[in-house]
Design a protein around this nucleic acid. Structure first.
Length: 943
RNA sequence: GCUCGGGUGGCGGAAUUGGUAUACGCGCAAGACUUAAAAUUUUGUCCCGUAAGGGAUACGGGUUCGACCCCCGUCCCGAGCACCA
């Protein structure tokens, strides 16, 4: 081949593929594989990200085709949405005109990539033949009582002038325009995705997805289990119902918090004596956006004077507060506050001087000396005494001569003895220091569990920490009995930390000595809790809930708000009649067509432009024939894209969204590739919608996507995200012009593993490297001979035997590197046409144009696309010699080349006889010989 | 803070899952071709050492004949969630 003229080659073959309809989907597949790539938004221009998405997935699809799968690899456009509407308004165009002209441009660009999309299956969500079924599905959901029209607290973007779903916020800002989002009450259409929250979590087990995607969805849904408790209110019929994940801390509740916007506050209004202050606080919080609330985590709130809640277990009367750290939308909107064991409650209680009641004690098990099963438990109370020397900030420690232990001053509390007295006594007895001053007790006790060998019993000791300060060095003489056993010394906490130190509670003590007081969040043993004292947190959770509350589960996920107050979206097929109320559009009147409008104007009234199109809005009620109005909000575009993959299998159907048989044939999707930005929205919505469709008997499974992959991000050459302002944007059209689509496709596959969502900087030199590779492949075509050398055959077959693994794992970077290794060897050897053409078939997935050209030039018949993936000749590989590494004491000293059928004895004796090995074993004894078949020999020698 | 990933040359990354660490590509260096440059090509390229050899997969320990891989601790980076009771 004279020169690699990518331009003419690519144009020539793309034309022939289209003319011959080469990529037509098999209608009755025997071995189906549905490969899906998220369909693009018709923004008008393909960037490198699109190439990474479509071209690299295409490499995978082409591979699957070559290995004999009947591949469905469709494409379409997610064509409704705000950007089109905004762009059209700006240019004085109709969104439809703008969208369709963009689609024409992008279709061309997509074809220039050399993708094997079946364009006959194209779908476009803004086409009435598509959105008829979006509307039909909406009605099915409505019938199933999963859609509600209700007053809703919404996120309102003042710049886009529409409502946003929680999923469309980016840390409190509009993800699209970055405006601060306002909170509003509006009538909205909501879809009850929360009813499927459990299934959306639990069914993740059925799918082969990367763990991080599953975890992200679980985090987003945010399931937590715990309990509801009801607090009666003194002199009221109302109750305060709280949700908690820590029912074991119920006895630690010292006050109750209600969210300021909670209905209950208004119901209790008449009883509140400080109404004006309370109103002022509520007003202040209403003005705060979510962002403000997040920005300042400083606790605020106000007590509802005149009200007391009654603790369900102790009957104590406790104060009630409103505070904005309680969120109305989560749980019950009310919190039982346990300052001792919750950080936020601790902060709030500290600020408002509220009591802090500890009910959970930390537990430490002595790992070197753990309790033994079957031995009796003996309870002890100990003091742990910390004596600080203020001069050098050291602490008094003991060295135990007999046991080689280091401890603080520890001792038992004798009957009738005050713990302070006990502490002073122990210090005097063990160290002789007379004059120490009590600073404070250091919080509640810690439980230590260990085995006391000398008594053959398990000890459960409650250690009480007390801090003293040394007044002067005056010492009493220590009794010989004590001084034989222990020796006192002074040590800094730093030294203690480094150890060795014999104290299983040490981490707790250090925390209390060094840090400011905070809530104790650990689980442990319950105390101060009436009948429940002494049991574990886990047990108490269950028992306290059983006695005083009820088991409960809550979710962070909220219902999906789908109303959008904009024009360019799927009309919601609902009618408002003043006598019949809400009436669904009869199914035989679908689709509700979006009217052509000359002028699209976004007003400040919070309504869709459709609301001002009187001709369209006003219609007779389908039930009573009285004048009625159409719903004028349109659907969130995520509704359009939540079911599109089912339409591909039967996109021409006018009787149904898809034929049941075709769904049975093609669903579920075997592989779905897309962007990580869709993890908690599109991907969650689509799973939800498919589940409902399954429950409606419309689709064969309850999970649509068996395998999912989030592709990574291509960064600019400087390692930053590509952006016009940084001037680091790579224009794919220019690249294709310069090096060809085949090279761009292959380079993107080579840049890093496609099965991980990493981010890879674009390396302009790297592209050149791939170009060089294909030029070398072209040169090989001129060097074909009649015979294969042994090296060539081995190179080809090694590659063939290994590369299927890489393709299947989407490790296209290593797949391509294996092809490079093969080419490097063929360049230095003789090879036949058959060998070369086998190589071409494998390469075809990456670079379909140049490979087709080389196929034709070497007398290949027809399209290489129809060729089967060549099988590796295993017998040839089996004949190769094997390399066995020989290690002595774990270090490789030589490598033996042997025949593959050498026995273990032969290998071992050859290894031991090798001169390289004798060097290391001479004069020593071989104490162990390890043989790993086909791989290595490991000898262990001793002097 | 919680959850999940990750840390290997100058760079992107390999190591098929406990068995020869650094494949492949880029970059770099030297040579060839050229009047010259580019392109192409050959050779080299983890560190120390003339060599024998030794040391390296963020850091510190451990298990093992053998650890990038498993366990414990520390540090750093990325992603998701976050006043979620």
């Amino acid at each position: 081949m004279k020169s690699y003229d990518h331009k003419s080659i690519e144009a020539k073959w793309q034309k022939q593929w289209t003319e011959q309809n080469l990529f037509k989907t098999v209608e009755n597949p025997k071995n189906k594989m549905y490969i899906l790539i998220e369909f693009p938004y018709p923004s008008g221009d393909l960037h490198v990200g699109h190439w990474y998405a479509f071209a690299v997935t295409d490499i995978f699809a082409r591979y699957m085709h070559h290995v004999g799968k009947d591949v469905l690899f469709p494409i379409g456009f997610d064509a409704f949405g705000l950007p089109a509407e905004n762009a059209a308004i700006k240019r004085g165009l109709n969104p439809k005109t703008w969208t369709y002209s963009n689609m024409a441009v992008m279709t061309n660009q997509l074809k220039n990539m050399g993708t094997m999309f079946d364009w006959d299956k194209k779908i476009v969500t803004c086409d009435p033949s598509y959105y008829k079924w979006t509307q039909w599905l909406f009605l099915q959901f409505y019938k199933k009582n999963l859609i509600h029209h209700e007053q809703t607290h919404v996120n309102w973007c003042p710049s886009c002038k529409t409502v946003l779903a929680n999923e469309q916020l980016d840390s409190g800002l509009c993800e699209r325009c970055g405006s601060t989002v306002e909170q509003k009450e509006m009538m909205q259409w909501n879809i009850a995705i929360t009813q499927y929250a459990d299934k959306l979590i639990d069914d993740l087990e059925q799918v082969k997805w990367p763990n991080h995607i599953k975890e992200a969805q679980k985090n987003w849904i945010g399931r937590s289990t715990g309990a509801y408790f009801s607090f009666d209110i003194q002199d009221s019929v109302e109750k305060i119902k709280v949700f908690t994940t820590r029912p074991d801390t119920l006895f630690g509740v010292t006050y109750v918090v209600i969210a300021p916007e909670h209905d209950l506050v208004q119901k209790l209004r008449s009883q509140i004596t400080n109404r004006s202050e309370v109103d002022a606080y509520i007003q202040k919080t209403n003005q705060k956006t979510d962002l403000d609330r997040q920005a300042s985590k400083e606790k605020s709130g106000i007590q509802l004077q005149g009200l007391f809640a009654i603790h369900p277990a102790t009957q104590e009367h406790i104060p009630v507060f409103i505070a904005d750290y309680a969120l109305a939308r989560y749980g019950t909107g009310c919190v039982m506050a346990v300052p001792a064991h919750d950080e936020r409650d601790f902060e709030f209680a500290s600020k408002f001087n509220l009591p802090i009641k500890h009910v959970i004690r930390p537990v430490r098990v002595d790992s070197t000396n753990p309790p033994q099963e079957g031995k009796k438990d003996v309870y002890r109370t100990n003091v742990h005494v910390f004596v600080r020397n203020p001069k050098d900030n050291t602490y008094l420690c003991l060295k135990w001569k007999k046991f080689d232990w280091n401890t603080f001053i520890i001792g038992g509390v004798e009957k009738g003895e005050d713990i302070i007295e006990a502490a002073k006594r122990e210090v005097l007895e063990e160290t002789g220091y007379k004059n120490i001053k009590l600073i404070q007790t250091l919080g509640e006790g810690v439980e230590a569990h260990y085995f006391a060998a000398h008594k053959d019993e398990n000890r459960i000791s409650i250690s009480l920490p007390i801090l003293f300060e040394l007044i002067d060095e005056e010492r009493h003489e220590v009794s010989t009995e004590e001084s034989v056993q222990v020796e006192p010394y002074w040590s800094t906490l730093e030294t203690v930390k480094k150890g060795p130190f014999t104290c299983s509670e040490l981490d707790v003590w250090l925390d209390r000595l060094e840090n400011i007081p905070h809530a104790m969040l650990e689980k442990g043993t319950v105390f101060n809790s009436g009948d429940f004292d002494g049991i574990s947190s886990e047990e108490a959770k269950f028992k306290i809930t059983e006695k005083f509350g009820e088991v409960a589960t809550t979710y962070k996920l909220q219902d999906w708000s789908v109303s959008r107050q904009r024009y360019w979206g799927c009309p919601i097929p609902m009618i408002h009649c003043s006598s019949c109320g809400i009436v669904p559009v009869p199914e035989n009147q679908l689709p509700v067509q979006l009217p052509e409008m000359e002028k699209i104007e976004i007003r400040d009234d919070g309504k869709s432009p459709l609301a001002h199109n009187q001709e369209w809005v006003n219609i007779p009620c389908p039930v009573c024939d009285a004048p009625a109005r159409r719903e004028t909000d349109t659907l969130d575009t995520f509704v359009d894209s939540s079911w599109y993959y089912t339409r591909y299998v039967d996109m021409l159907n006018i009787e149904a969204f898809a034929d049941k048989k075709k769904l049975d044939t093609w669903m579920p999707i075997d592989f779905y590739s897309g962007g990580s930005e869709h993890t908690t929205r599109h991907l969650l919505y689509a799973r939800f919608v498919y589940k409902v469709m399954h429950d409606l008997g419309l689709v064969p499974q309850s999970e649509p996507f068996m395998k999912r992959n989030n592709r990574g991000l291509i960064l600019g050459p400087d390692g930053n995200k590509m952006s016009k302002s940084k001037g680091n944007v790579i224009n794919p059209d220019e690249l294709v012009e310069k090096v060809g689509a085949d090279v761009v496709r292959s380079y993107l596959a080579f840049i890093g593993p496609y099965n991980e969502a990493g981010s890879y900087p674009w390396d302009p030199n790297g592209v050149v490297g791939i170009r060089r590779f294909f030029e070398r492949v072209c040169e090989l075509a001129d060097r074909i001979s009649t015979e294969d050398s042994k090296e060539s055959l081995i190179a080809l077959n090694t590659m063939l035997s290994q590369i299927t693994y890489d393709f299947e794992q989407l490790k296209l970077n290593t797949a391509l590197s294996k092809l490079m290794i093969c080419v490097n060897i063929l360049e230095k050897s003789n090879f036949s046409k058959q060998t070369f053409q086998s190589l071409l078939i494998v390469l075809n997935s990456f670079a379909p144009h140049i490979v087709q050209e080389l196929w034709s030039q070497t007398d290949g018949v027809g399209f290489i696309h129809t060729q089967k993936f060549p099988a590796a000749d295993q017998s040839l590989l089996g004949q190769q010699g094997i390399k066995i590494a020989v290690q002595v004491n774990g270090k490789t000293r030589t490598v033996l080349e042997l025949s593959p059928d050498a026995s273990q004895e032969e290998v071992l004796s050859l290894a031991k006889a090798s001169s390289e090995i004798i060097k290391w074993t001479e004069g020593k004894t071989i104490v162990k010989e390890i043989y790993v078949p086909q791989k290595l020999v490991s000898l262990v020698v001793k002097e």
